[in-house]
Structures are given as structure tokens and as C-alpha cells.
Design a protein around this nucleic acid. Structure first.
Lengths: 109, 109
DNA sequence: TTTTTATATCGTAATATTGCAATATAGAAA
DNA sequence: TTTCTATATTGCAATATTACGATATAAAAA
């Protein structure tokens, strides 16, 4: 065990879970926070900003990239990372969908 | 290691990460999906709905409850679970905040 | 070319998560 | 009370995540 039984759930449920999972670490939230406040977005700046070693930050960046939450473009020697809003909008749409669903039911608890 | 270094991040970052983490499993997304479509919300129905054993579902429900995403009320013999929208709204607010931050910067990548 | 600078990957230890059988608990029904 | 029904908890095996030192890679600078 320790393995999520993804095969039993819908593709959408799995996708949303992966997206949320990528947001489920304070370092990754901190990275998004930082990226949303700066004009330039060089990887090295993120490493300096976070209280974690460079390989650890690199790993978190990879996970955010895998989830589609950020994208990176090579800029000479270094890499420019920035937020891809599309993925975030998916989450927002989902939450809105759930809220709408609830508003159509009787409140039970 | 294996332990998240929460002490280095802000309270808000940690809270949001915990919230997102709770959403970061397809079974828990499936539970929210289900709760948003039914009027009654008896725990047993959720167990029947999900392709997981009862103890596993119970564990997922506990995590959703810990994150404040659902609440449960005792209803005689059984328990009535339902979504608490407040937590979901926190996530939505955060995403909106990030989006707003981005729109104020020059697009870089 | 050699060296520096920036980032990624590998390997690994510590810890967390997932899933379930077995069992506990507690209210309802008999 | 005894039994049934609904849910939670315990214990454990399998796997995943987090963090980082050491190392690789690759472009820039010297």
C-alpha cells in the first residue's frame, strides 16, 4: 500500500487531486506567492528567497511544473520561472462547481 | 527528513498548504463531489459510493474534517457529513489573490 | 580552454501517506 | 440484556514525500 488507487476514480478527480497535491506544501505556496509579486522570476532568486537548500527547491519547482502550475524558460545561463494561471483557474472552476452544487440542495448539517 | 519544515513559512502559507493537501487525493475529491450532489449525506452512503474499504473511507473523512472541508453531525446511529464551504472559499480567495498579483506585473515567460 | 555560475539529478535517510484486516465503540432494535 | 448496525481506531505493510549532500550538466565569463 501507500499507493493511491487512481484507477478507481475519474480522470477529472485524479487531475484535480494532482493539482491540489502540488499546492499542498508550504514551500510550493511560498514559491507561487513570490512569483506573483515579482516582475523577474529567476530560479536563483527563488532559492535565495526560500529557507531550503537548492536541490530541495529544484525538486519543488519540478513538481509545480509537472502539475502545470508554473512554466520555465531558459534565459541564457539561468531559468525564468513563472505562474501558469490556467491550472489555478481549473481549481477555481472546480470550487465554484462544488459551491453551486451545494446551493441547489437543502442544507443538512 | 520526510518532514515538512513548516516553521520556516508563514501561518497562512502553512494553512493553505494543509487545505490543498486535504484536497490532494482523488478519494477526497470524490467525497466532495458526492456530497455536493446529494441532499442527505450519511457516512454509510459515502462508503458504498467509494471503491475503498470502510476504514480507508473513514480515514479520508477524518482528514477532510481536520482540514475544515467537511463537518459531521451525529444523527442517531449514523453520522451526517456535509461540506463546509468556508474552507473552499479560502482557497478561492487565495487563487484570486495570486491572479491579481500576476495581472499587476509584466508577463515574463 | 579553464573556471565560474546556475540549475538539475542521484542517492539516501527520515518521515508521512495509503489501504485494509481486525477490533473497538456506541446507539438502535429485538 | 443481547444482537445488530454504523462508524472509528489500531496495527501494520507497501509506497510516497521531504530534505539535502554530492555530483552532473551546461552556458557564461575569463
Amino acid at each position: 500500500m501507500g499507493t493511491t488507487k487512481t484507477e478507481h476514480f475519474t480522470e477529472k478527480q485524479n487531475e484535480l487531486a494532482l493539482l491540489a497535491k502540488a499546492l499542498g506544501h508550504p514551500a510550493r505556496i511560498a514559491i507561487l506567492d513570490y512569483l506573483s509579486t515579482v516582475d523577474t522570476c529567476i530560479c536563483g532568486d527563488i532559492v535565495k528567497e526560500l529557507p531550503l537548500a537548492q536541490p530541495t527547491v529544484s525538486q519543488h519547482l519540478k513538481e509545480l511544473k509537472n502539475a502545470g502550475l508554473i512554466k520555465g524558460t531558459i534565459e541564457g545561463n539561468s531559468i525564468c520561472y513563472c505562474i501558469d494561471e490556467t491550472a489555478l483557474q481549473h481549481l477555481n472552476t472546480y470550487i465554484a462547481h462544488i459551491s453551486e452544487g451545494i446551493s441547489k440542495r437543502k442544507t443538512c448539517c
